[in-house]
Amino acid sequence: MAQSINRRLMKVSEIPAFVEEVIRTGCNIRAVGHDKYIVGDADLSPAEYERAGPELDKIEDAYGERDFLKLEIVRYLRSIGRYVDVGADGSE
């Protein structure tokens, strides 16, 4: 039988702190359009990722489940100018 893992649910009020902590790791968190966001850890060098990876894990553990807040996170990122809009052909 599969066990369920009870994870903490992130609160809307925690979005600004969450974003700030991710930025401090060196990851370029951005909204993409109006319904997605990326953390940008793939842009890090191997050495930067080795340092940031454990920090990102701690942030994820601290804030918990956030998938259900995706659109609120996107709205917040857009409100602080951290977004990229893409055209119909996928270009910026």
Rank of each mutant, 00 (worst) to 15 (best):
E48A: 10
L69S: 03
E72G: 10
G40T: 08
S79A: 00
D57Y: 11
A62W: 05
T25E: 02
R78S: 08
E50F: 09
L56E: 04
A47Q: 15
V22W: 01
H34R: 14
L77G: 08
P16Y: 07
R24Y: 01
I73L: 05
R24H: 05
K11A: 11
V22M: 02
A42Y: 12
V74I: 04
K36L: 14
P16I: 10
Y76G: 04
R78Y: 01
V39W: 07
D43F: 10
K36M: 13
A62K: 15
D35G: 14
F68V: 13
L44F: 00
D67P: 08
G64Y: 03
K11M: 11
V32G: 04
D67L: 11
K58E: 15
P54K: 01
A47F: 06
G64K: 01
D57C: 14
V74A: 05
D57Q: 14
E14W: 01
R78W: 00
C27A: 07
L56P: 04
L69V: 06
P46D: 11
I29N: 04
N28M: 11
P16T: 06
L77P: 07
Y76S: 05
L9G: 05
L77W: 03
P54G: 10
R66Y: 06
I59K: 07
G53L: 08
Y37V: 08
H34L: 12
L77A: 08
V19A: 06
S79Y: 01
R30V: 11
E55N: 09
H34I: 13
S79V: 04
R75D: 15
E14F: 06
G53K: 10
R51L: 11
V32D: 02
R51C: 07
I15H: 03
I15N: 05
E72A: 15
P54W: 03
L69T: 06
D43S: 14
D57M: 13
V22R: 05
I59C: 02
H34K: 10
S13P: 06
P46C: 06
R24G: 08
E20V: 09
D35N: 14
V74M: 03
V22H: 00
D35A: 11
R75W: 03
D57I: 12
A31H: 00
D61N: 11
G33M: 00
L9F: 09
E60K: 13
D57T: 15
G40Q: 06
I29T: 06
D57V: 15
E21P: 04
H34Y: 13
E21Q: 10
R24D: 12
M10H: 00
V19N: 03
P16V: 09
I73D: 07
I38C: 10
E60G: 15
L56G: 01
E60P: 09
